[in-house]
């Protein structure tokens, strides 16, 4: 599955990093990084991350 974060609305709450740490993380400067293509076995975590995003910035496609 494809994962995208709309960085024009992301406000770095970090809820996705908690919900799906295998997919989302912060780099040392505090910027959000994520895997653009993830295995279906992580689908539930990515969905949880999307639901947990207060800005609705995560797009799953």
């Amino acid at each position: 599955m494809k994962v995208h974060v709309d960085m024009s609305i992301c406000l770095l709450h970090g809820q996705c990093v908690i919900a799906a740490p295998e997919v989302f993380s912060f780099d040392d400067d505090g910027g959000l990084v994520w895997l653009a293509e993830v295995d279906e076995s992580l689908a539930a975590d990515v969905e949880a991350a999307s639901d947990a995003c207060p800005e609705q910035a995560i797009v799953i496609g």
Binding site: L12, G14, V17, I18, S25, F26, D28, D29, G30
Partner: peptide, 10 residues
Amino acid sequence: ANPAALARHR
């Protein structure tokens, strides 16, 4: 705070 620093403490 820097989100990365906060994530480590969290």
